[in-house]
Design a binder for these strands. Structure first.
Lengths: 159, 159
DNA sequence: TATTGTTATACTCTATAACTATA
DNA sequence: TATAGTTATAGAGTATAACAATA
């Protein structure tokens, strides 16, 4: 097969799929951003950071937050500073490594996050209410394959 | 049923699905943005605008571009200005309405876009290469239902 | 009056790179 | 030297609102 024609136009389905996925994500994301701003005067990255912490009762180190949020460290510092100033999260010293912190929710932060999360879930359930349970499961499973493939360390050439 | 408990925690699958979809989109989008910057010194909104025009040989009016790109008009003006300055798109007067333009690709813009689109397709095919054809089709169909539901005019109350 | 498009502005989010302190 | 985190900076991306021209 002509090497130049390798993948071109053989898989237009993948392209159409991507454009549709992007549209769906943007639709839902816009809705969530707007609601977070209007109802809680906050932003998606701030909500995301608190959501990460909600699942980690002992808190997370900055580099772990950075990895999970898929943004570089400087940004996490900025968002954390805001949330600390509002008393929603706190920095805890790590024993045995005076360079590192763990960031965790304060009781106030946890309470606020729970309120936000409850409404957030409603918005999301509404956004996906065009699907039945089985379809949601199928979508979840297929996206899992996409994620796994994209997350796996690249190994383009033969072993 | 208790109204407060209406949707809460009854559909955690929708929430998990959304978080996974967001992750997938961000993974692919980050990859695309990086490649567009490194290889073509351009950005995703610029690419998106050109992609919209590529499908409209006669060009699109600003408000139509704004709607399709899901951003407000001022931003479209800014991106269009950049692309006009580089000779990639042009503004054409609309007969019968001296307020409006149509924006369309120049031959130079079309040529460049075709090059970008070919590589873009490779990146996308690679991103979804963890799925087989049937799975891509299923995913496409399910996301179509999500999109249709989110796009339909809201009608929360009874008719 | 309503619509098309532009201008001006402000803010969030982001990556990069230089930096400090500690390991 | 390497790592954890911060600071400083610049640019992308966005929404909002006021504005001009035309319908």
């Amino acid at each position: 097969m002509d090497i130049e024609a390798r993948a071109h136009s053989e898989h237009p389905e993948a392209l159409r799929l991507w454009l549709r996925m992007l549209t769906c994500s943007q639709l839902v994301e816009k809705q969530v951003r707007t609601q977070l701003r209007e109802r809680f005067d906050t932003t998606l990255p701030r909500f995301d950071l608190m959501a990460q912490l909600e699942r980690a009762p002992d808190g997370l180190k900055m580099n772990e937050l950075s990895r999970r949020m898929m943004v570089t460290g400087g940004n996490v510092t900025g968002i954390t500073d805001q949330l600390v100033a509002e008393g929603l999260v706190e920095r805890i010293d790590v024993e045995g490594d005076r360079r590192a912190y763990r960031v965790r929710l304060t009781p106030k932060g946890r309470k606020l996050f729970n309120e936000m999360a409850r409404q957030h879930e409603d918005w999301i359930v509404d956004a996906f209410s065009g699907l039945n349970e089985k379809e949601i499961g199928t979508l979840y499973k297929l996206l899992g394959k996409v994620k796994d493939h994209a997350t796996q360390p690249r190994q383009e050439t033969a072993p």
